[in-house]
Amino acid sequence: MITVKNLWFSYDAQVILEDVNLTIKQGEFIAVIGPNGGGKTTLIKLILGILKPQRGEITVLGQPPKAAARRMGYVPQNTNISKVFPISVMDVALMGRLGKAGRAWRYSEADRRRAEEALDRVGMLEHKKSPVLNLSGGQRQRVFIARALASDPEILFMDEPTASVDQEWQAQIYNLLKELNKSITIVVVSHDISILSSYVKSVACVNRTVYYHDAAEITEEMLGKMYQCPVELVAHGVPHRVLQSH
């Protein structure tokens, strides 16, 4: 579904990603983890076609990223968007329909219905007329998920969905993603490895290069390569073991 081959990317002289190879299959629920500044967000933006690689090739759904952009949903990091912007919940959700609406000067009835369905799915339909600036961090996050869902994506990318969100909502987000994963492929970026609970099917560790692991667990070898220093693994009494026995 997504193929990344020999990918290189650098900002100015600083290499962010080198020789990355990655294949993501249909129906996956993959966690992209790694240290801050390791290139997780950059990798996602390359796959989405927001950034262009210096070398290498990316195909998404058999097309170059730009061409496939409208078949992908994207929930960016919560922190990058102005919190005082005067806009309603519904108007944010409708942005997910931009690709379908094209340059028509207004959204169609069908677009509005689809946006409302997406809001309903994340439990925000009753707030559709509220200004976004009145919402809590978790509610804003849900609206951004609705915006991505409104575009009927085949693949959903989420960048740090649990940042600035309370514990209770973190669990809700992952339950929602698990539900969505029945029909779409999901890629979640997080610097927090505790998300590797029962939800995730595979893991990709990103730190300049990518290590892919076909199961929801991290090996010590992966961590060693990732963080370039001995890392103490702290295993809590979680229902699903995320760390290999060691």
Binding site: L48, G49, I50, A69, R70, M72, Y74, P76, N80, I81, S82, F85, I87, D91, V92, L94, M95, G96, L98, G99, A101, G102, R103, W105, R106, Y107, R147, S151
Partner: peptide, 17 residues
């Protein structure tokens, strides 16, 4: 709607074409 999308979240607007 396009100016609104660009002003609110330029990256997402670009992704939506």
């Amino acid at each position: 709607k396009d100016f609104l999308a660009m002003s609110y979240d330029e990256e997402f607007a670009g992704l939506m074409g």
